[in-house]
Amino acid sequence: MKGWFRLTLGLLAVVVGLVWTLQGLGTLRGSVMSGDDAWTIIGPIVVVIGLVLLTLGLRARNRGKRT
């Protein structure tokens, strides 16, 4: 079970970051965030954080399998 928490948080952060980016770009409409440039910046930052968490989670899982 090592690394599952980081994997889950990482995947969630990537999905949320992508949604926020698309809302900031105006691709996804119907929200207060739609067309707001701030979300165009915040979204990719959250995606990168999510990718880091995914990487750390995968490393923790792989380390757990070796022992």
Rank of each mutant, 00 (worst) to 15 (best):
L22A: 15
M1W: 06
G10A: 05
I49V: 15
R66A: 03
R59D: 01
D36Y: 01
V47P: 06
V19C: 04
K2H: 05
G24V: 06
G57M: 03
L54T: 08
R66P: 00
G24T: 10
L56G: 01
G3D: 08
R6V: 04
M1Q: 07
D37G: 13
V16L: 14
L18K: 04
V19R: 01
G57A: 02
A38K: 01
T8Q: 07
V14T: 04
A13Q: 07
R29L: 07
T55G: 14
P44Y: 11
L54C: 06
R29N: 09
W20T: 00
S31Q: 04
N62E: 13
W20K: 02
V19A: 07
L18N: 11
K65H: 00
V52Q: 14
L51C: 14
G17R: 06
G35F: 02
F5I: 12
T40Y: 09
R29D: 12
V46E: 15
L53S: 08
L58D: 01
W39N: 03
M1I: 00
T55Q: 14
I42N: 03
R66I: 00
G43I: 05
W4I: 14
I41M: 14
L28R: 11
L22E: 12
L28P: 06
G24C: 12
V48G: 08
W4E: 12
G57N: 06
V19E: 01
T67V: 05
G43K: 04
M33T: 12
G57I: 02
G10Y: 08
G17W: 10
S31L: 02
V46A: 15
N62S: 13
V32M: 12
I45A: 13
A13W: 09
S34D: 02
L58G: 10
I45Y: 11
V16E: 05
R66D: 06
M33V: 12
V47S: 04
V46W: 06
G17I: 04
G3K: 12
V16T: 09
T40W: 10
R63W: 01
D37E: 13
V19G: 00
T40F: 03
G30A: 03
M1E: 05
V15I: 15
T21D: 02
W20C: 07
L12K: 02
S31D: 05
L25V: 02
K65N: 05
A13T: 04
W20N: 08
G50T: 14
S34F: 01
